[in-house]
């Protein structure tokens, strides 16, 4: 196996990993603000892809108009999910909340293809199909653009979390009662987190849609995103960035190196193995916060 191939696999994996990580950002955002595990993120990404396609196809708008519109619409959709469903679940056991978000995932998985038809929708961002050569490495331009956009958005999320708005979100996740006592509008902060989760998921849905087309299988991004969120620590965005790279590279190398030996199919195992191993070895992930116990 030559080094160029390994390099190509690793680089492609890293780019793909960043695109996965963009889906995970929404899970972390929501968890970090409200402590809710958001299992609907994969289907929200898929819905974002559908929304973009629908706006472009039915309204006949160019992509550069359709994309911002879809981002705004899905921001609203995220807030709607919080408002209509999760606000009423406050105080319920964790398992109920997980079930509700997962229910939303399954619902959207059926609803979107049901509404727009099951055929794969093409989303053309105008990225040239021809691969790019880096030495002897072949790099898919769609992944390159996707990885770069994802990295930029994740960095923006990190900046956001260190601004006052981000501090407020973290305060809400620490102690809702105390947040109320100092004038933080807790419900609004949580709704905004869901809105941002919707918008980032849509960005990911668009990027992935441009690579593989839009159909229900986009919602399977949930598995990768969960693996990344858990590995990164569930409440750390830098963790998402690093974990995304790890998951992407591992997956890509597994596909390139192990697949020929065992006859394929290792790609989807990687994410699940990472979830299980993380939970066994380091349950709070790479950067997750531990519960502070003052002695």
């Amino acid at each position: 196996m030559d080094l160029w191939l390994i390099g190509e696999l690793a680089l492609t994996g890293a780019l793909v990993g960043l695109m996965y990580a963009l889906v995970a950002v929404g899970i972390v955002l929501v968890y970090k603000t409200s402590g809710v595990a958001n299992f609907a993120q994969g289907a929200i990404a898929m819905s974002g892809g559908y929304a973009t396609w629908a706006i472009a196809a039915f309204l006949g708008l160019p992509m550069w108009v359709a994309i911002p519109l879809a981002l705004v619409a899905m921001f609203g959709f995220g807030m709607l999910v919080e408002h209509a469903v999760l606000r009423h679940m406050v105080g319920q056991p964790v398992i109920m909340i997980i079930m509700v978000t997962f229910g939303i995932e399954i619902f959207l998985r059926g609803f979107m293809p049901g509404t727009f038809g099951v055929a794969v929708k093409r989303l053309d961002l105008g990225i040239p199909q021809a691969p790019m050569f880096l030495g002897e490495m072949l790099i898919n331009r769609a992944y390159l653009v996707g990885g770069a956009v994802s990295a930029a958005l994740i960095l923006a999320a990190i900046v956001l979390f260190n601004s006052r708005a981000g501090i407020v979100m973290r305060a809400v996740s620490d102690d809702q009662g105390a947040s109320w006592s100092v004038g933080i509008r807790v419900e609004r902060a949580i709704a905004v987190a869901w809105g941002l989760a919707g918008a980032t998921a849509t960005a990911a849905g668009i990027l992935w849609g441009s690579v593989q087309g839009i159909d229900w299988s986009l919602s399977l991004l949930l598995m990768k995103a969960l693996a990344i969120a858990i590995l990164g620590g569930l409440d750390s965005i830098p963790g998402v960035l690093l974990a995304g790279l790890i998951v992407g590279v591992c997956e890509s190398l597994a596909t390139g190196v192990i697949d020929p030996l065992v006859g394929g199919g290792t790609r989807d195992i990687v994410a699940s193995v990472i979830i299980v191993l993380t939970l066994l070895v380091r349950p709070y992930g790479l950067f997750g916060r531990e519960h502070i116990e003052r002695v």
Binding site: R164, A171, D175, G177, S181, G183
Partner: peptide
């Protein structure tokens, strides 16, 4: 009206500076 709750209830994972900033949304 500001209420200092029983048991202090600071935001444990935030620094003191961030604790203070979190209370300035108004």
């Amino acid at each position: 009206i500001a209420h200092v709750l029983e048991g202090r209830r600071v935001f444990g994972h935030l620094t003191p500076e961030e604790n203070l900033l979190a209370a300035t949304t108004m």
